[in-house]
Structures are given as C-alpha cells and as structure tokens.
Design a protein around this nucleic acid. Sequence first.
DNA 1: CTGATAAATGCGGTTATTTGCAGTTATTTA
DNA 2: TAAATAACTGCAAATAACCGCATTTATCAG
Lengths: 249, 249
Amino acid sequence: MLKKERQAYILHQVNLHNKVLSSLLSHEIRVSEDTIRRDLQELSEEGKLIKVHGGALSHSFNDVSYSGLSVYSQDQKRIIGEKAAALIQNGMFVLTSGGTTIIEMARALPPSLRATFISGSIPAILEYMQHPNIEVIMIGDRVSKNAKITIGAEAIAKIRNINADLCFLGINAIDIKRGTTENDWEIAQLKKIMIDSSKKVVCCTISEKINTLQPIHICNIADIDILITELPPDAPVLKPYIDAGIQVL
Amino acid sequence: MLKKERQAYILHQVNLHNKVLSSLLSHEIRVSEDTIRRDLQELSEEGKLIKVHGGALSHSFNDVSYSGLSVYSQDQKRIIGEKAAALIQNGMFVLTSGGTTIIEMARALPPSLRATFISGSIPAILEYMQHPNIEVIMIGDRVSKNAKITIGAEAIAKIRNINADLCFLGINAIDIKRGTTENDWEIAQLKKIMIDSSKKVVCCTISEKINTLQPIHICNIADIDILITELPPDAPVLKPYIDAGIQVL
DNA sequence: CTGATAAATGCGGTTATTTGCAGTTATTTA
DNA sequence: TAAATAACTGCAAATAACCGCATTTATCAG
C-alpha cells in the first residue's frame, strides 16, 4: 500500500467516523503504529485532521455537538457492519442490497481485503468505490429514487446470472414465523433473487426490527444462513433464531 | 510495445484501480522500472496522474483539496451546463457520459422537465436522482474507480440497444482534423457506442480543450451535431467547427 | 537503401525515502 | 503515585528515485 493511499484511507476514516485510533488503524492497515503516527503527524501539519493522544479527530468534530440518539443508532449499525465485514474473505464474490446497515459494512471493510462486490445500490457502490482493493460491479436498470437502488426486470435477470459466495441483506423486518418481509414489492423481488443467487445469505438488522412484520414476504427463516444484529449472540431475543438453525453473530 | 501504447495502458490501469505500482507495471510490461518511472514522470507532467513514491495515483484520489483553478473552471462549466440543459425537451430520451461538465448540466435541468436520462456515470446518476420529474436509468457493469463510470462489454451491449434522442458527451480533447479523442480505451469505446445509439450528438467542453489531442480516437467532427463551450458562438477559435457544419452554442 | 540524427531504453553507482525496531521519555488513568 | 499506554529519538535495512552514460531503436532526408 502506497503512503499517499494509506493517508487517503486514514482521512476517509476520520471524515467518516470523526475519530480514529492509531492502534486500530495500525492493525487494519498492517503497518507499525510508528508509521500511523507519522502519517497522522503529516496530515495534521497539512491541517487535514487534529492529532490527539492515541489517534486523531476530524476537524469538523470540534465545533459540532452531536445528537445523542442518531449517533447511538449509528453505533449499533457500526457494530453490525464490523461483524458483517469480518465474514468476507479474499477472493469472494459478494452480493449486497442497499440500506444504511450495508453502508456501515462497506465502511468497516479492511483495506487489505481483495474481493468483488456486486450491488444495485448507489450509496453502497459509492462506498465500495472508496476502497483501494475491491472490484465493484454495478447492477443496471431503472433507478428507484427513494430506495436509491436499481430495480426492474433487467436487474433481476442480471442477478439471476450471478453465483455469489455471500449475500448481505439489510432487512427492515424479520419474524421467526413469517421470515423476512419488506414494504416495497420490487425490492422484495430483488432480494428474493439475490438469495437464490448466493451460496450463503447474511441478514443484517438492528434488534428493533426483530419480530416485526411488513406486508411483502421475502424469504423464510430456513433460507437465512447468518443473522447479524448489534446484540451479543446470547441475547434472549435471538434464541428462537438460533434454535431454528441460524448462525447468529 | 510502443511508448504511447505503454502510457495508454498505464493510464488505463490508473483509471481502473486508482493506483499503480512501478514494480508491478515494470514486471507486467517487461520494461525496466526506470522506463516506467520516466513514463509516470511524463504523465504526471501532463497532469494525467499523480506520481508518488513507489508508483502513481489517479487524480480523483486527492482532489478533495484543490479548489483554486477548479472554481474558475466550474463557472465556465456552469455556463456550458445551462446551454446544454436548454436543449432537452419533455419526453426525450437522453444518453449522457460522465464528467464534471455533465454534472453541471444535470444541475441546470429545470425542475419541470420530464425526460428519461440514461447513464453509467455514478456522479451523474446521483444528480439526476435529485430531480423531481425525470426517470433515471443506470447502465450496469464493472465500475471504473477513477472515472466513476461503468465500463465493459455489458455496458456496451446495453447502450447498443438504446435509441436516444440526444447524447451528451463531456469530452477532454477535440481537434478539427482528428475529431474527439480520449485517454482511456474503454471509455472511448463507450462513447463511440453512445454516439451510434443517438439521433443527435452534443459535445460539451471548456474552451481549453479545443484543438488538443489525446491518444485514442472517439469520433470525427462530422459525427458531432452540436458543440457547446463557455464561449459565445462567434469566438474565433470556434469558427473552423462552424465551417465544418457543426452547430455551435 | 543508407547513413545521420534524435529519441528511447537499460544499467551501474549514488542518493533519498520509507519503514520498523529498540530504548527512552511523556502522558493518561486508576 | 504507579502502571499502562502512547509518543519521541536515533538507527539500520529495504526499497525507490536519480544521474550519467552506453546501447539500441526509430525517423527521415537524400
């Protein structure tokens, strides 16, 4: 990894999360903490960030007081994102839906990871593009303005031809009896096909959405391989899903 | 392998992956690292990429900070964008490339306009999505990280099936004899097909790019219907293009 | 076709940059 | 205050960049 590239990555992380830890970065990028410290030093001298003991802060962080709840929800999603990112190994083909949880996964991808990501979600693609080593494939079709994802027959046909190793779905409702459900018919179709085109299906959702329902059926519990929430796997609310044979992280 | 050919290859690699390593290139092309370094040096002097210790990075990588020249240029592009947007009428199918000039056109679209926009450019799609009344169609394929556009056989096949009313191309070089040229082979292919798939072709470029050349040919002057620059149509530099039968705005 | 000229390339030696490590000093926190 | 952690310093190894020069390759006029 080139020096400039590394510094760009650090800057990206700082702007994303408002802070970085030297120790964490050093582990992620697999360079010594000294190198990270020298990078932070240089970036700080260029005024790109504020260096502090143990890491660095974003410049905008100083004056902006952050609202408690929205950051809290984002923290939950970040936990989910990190768990999800850990599942991906070099060389994998990964199919993903859109949604804020998936975006957090994209942000948590280690920079050394080499894999191919396929998605129709424009915000997700934007995140994947930032990553130094992953190949990005965009599914084309008509763009749904509110979901910011491509939907339609073309997209479905294209996904049907894919054979992915992993499929990550950000889901809005999951129930032990009814499985996962959705409120948009076309997105539900898309997710169904994505499930069919992948060896393993990973559902990512914050725990609020567990045991909730929406009108349109996507898949049954039996179709899900892995369920990721921000809770530890032994949380009581997750027990029924473990009993149903799902791997819960 | 010819020098020009080699440099085009290097540029292509930079556009695809956002970075290249001298050592890797030298091994791939089977020339000495000195030669690669000299190539990178030249390309860097031409502003095509950014040379760093160990290789080179694409310009898009760290263009977050440079604003001095780009602001001036942005005003020019806004003028172009407004002229371009005025060409589009209700019900039209419009095919567009990427590039900052096209983005400015997207921003200048009147809110009441009802039309269908088709593109593989992710930043352009983002702008189109903001618009209340236009239909947006995304061309899918592998994403070029630097150009932020989908490129490849899929994209070309898809565009070939389109029959658009207008095609807007942001171009980087135009010359009265050689026509429009490009430095990325795959993007040149894409633009060629876009021209074939449209009734009318509109080229948008700032006047700096007039009478300049790049290595890969896209189309001849005769293939262009309308040329838009920030200059008034009677500017002397545009006269040869008017004489060649192009409508200049 | 040929010789002259210019451009491009590769190589050896030198210099500069980057990086990690060990040892020391500074800062934080309980 | 003491233990833990982070930052700083100097140094050494690895790698890359640079310089000058010889060799090869391309260009072109006659």
